[in-house]
Design a protein around this nucleic acid. Sequence first.
DNA 1: GCTCAATCTTAACGGTGTCAAGATTCTTTC
DNA 2: GAAAGAATCTTGACACCGTTAAGATTGAGC
Lengths: 204, 204
Amino acid sequence: MPKKAPAPSPHSYHHGHLHDALVRTARHILEKEGFAALSLRRVAHAAGVSPAAPYHHFADKQALLDAVAEEGFAALRSGMLARMAKKANPAARLDACGVGYVLFAVENPALFQLMFGRSDREEPANEALAAASELAQEVLQTAVAQCSPGDKVNPLTSLRLWALAHGVAKLILEAGVKPTDYGLKSTEKLVESLLDRGKWEKAG
Amino acid sequence: MPKKAPAPSPHSYHHGHLHDALVRTARHILEKEGFAALSLRRVAHAAGVSPAAPYHHFADKQALLDAVAEEGFAALRSGMLARMAKKANPAARLDACGVGYVLFAVENPALFQLMFGRSDREEPANEALAAASELAQEVLQTAVAQCSPGDKVNPLTSLRLWALAHGVAKLILEAGVKPTDYGLKSTEKLVESLLDRGKWEKAG
DNA sequence: GCTCAATCTTAACGGTGTCAAGATTCTTTC
DNA sequence: GAAAGAATCTTGACACCGTTAAGATTGAGC
């Protein structure tokens, strides 16, 4: 072997190893340098492979992005569940769910924008991606359901909570909303204040 | 001159006419073909001008996009005010404000994504753009203020309403939320149900 | 009318997503 | 184990992108 072998020799990946390596590399670039730096050629180069190699594992760039987004939804779900696990009563768990949603977005801005952010899509998105997305949604829905046991849950209630959390996340990411603008020290405090259902009716 | 002169001859634009024409053309392409089709070369070609011409009126592509976004914020403000003008009491006006926000987003999806959607921006954005954005925000803030006259308005209340409306808009655009999924016939009905402050506490 | 600044064009550079053709390698089958 | 075939990777190309430099053309002011 020559002294440096930056790229693994052909077929050192097999049975989808390059597939996974590309997703891993893409996510790495996304986190380190943002969405704008995430090009297929760049991912291929970083993975030690030619620019056309990814096309044997993904139909196009969007398919690779979808795979990254799919991992993102799993991570979002994990983040929410981890925060919820620390709370005992259902109401606190529901709060933790929303806070976990927003904090995931704030801590992984580029990934969050990749998970959503695709506006002009007409095709109904990947199937595995849709499944991962729904799995994350279910965390919120069950949290809502356990908050009023026995009662039938109005689907609009879950949707409204989702929309509120999503809006808070997006406003922080896209509109430059900062906790200090509202006299709060941390993003977590801001999110808790915004999502706290007890405070909605007062101080109008 | 060869037989066909599809493009206006040089300097048929003067004193910023091309500037305005480029913004107009960009907005047209954005509405007709979506964000992905909005390239600087395409805008220049559609305006009958060489690929490099826009650089005499805009620092770069983002500057042109900012100009389009600025118009977008003005249109958003107009849309909200138009809907509010039809209502008499302050509470109904506040509702109309939120509905107008979401319906603008749904009716101008690409423009709305352009107005927000910029994630990895470190520079504090254009000044005129920021002004237009704040002008739109003020519509909501005054609507909230007039809803509880005399009282001091908690800034978090306005922010929460903004976040809710923004989240609803983004979920419809990005997550494929449809009114029919919730037994509602129109987007307007869905938005009204989600934003209606009277329904927040019941049907948990 | 000449000068000067503003504006536009042409040409080019590096980068992008994507595809076709060929080379290479693993896997399967005899 | 060797041949055949499928899977994988590379090379090279195409069209498009944002952006810049160098020149041409135009209108305005002295």
